[in-house]
Amino acid sequence: MSGSTIETLRRMANQIARNFEIMGHVDAVEATADHINMFWDPRMKKQIFGDGGQDLSPIAKAAIEELAQGEIPAHQTRATEFNAVDDIGQSDAG
């Protein structure tokens, strides 16, 4: 069932967007963009930026467009807030 890399990236972006959808469109777009910005390798971002939004849900597409324009979204969840250099507060141990 493995598709091409771009198909995988589209699926990932859509899945993230779908799980944030409950937040409402505007917040979900920001959360999706924030998530991708913090966790994706630059090559993955570049590849999906150049894909023209094909097969993306409205939320995912808007998030990708925002990132492609160079905007850095504010952190929307604590999952994307990380410890400062001298901070012990958080762990995201798997």
């Binding site: 604590r78 762990s91 798997g94």
Partner: peptide, 16 residues
């Protein structure tokens, strides 16, 4: 357990 990291960090602030 990577979802443990994401889930508990989001809710409790630390995932351990």
């Amino acid at each position: 357990h990577s979802p443990t990291g994401y889930g508990l960090k989001t809710t409790f602030g630390t995932s351990a």
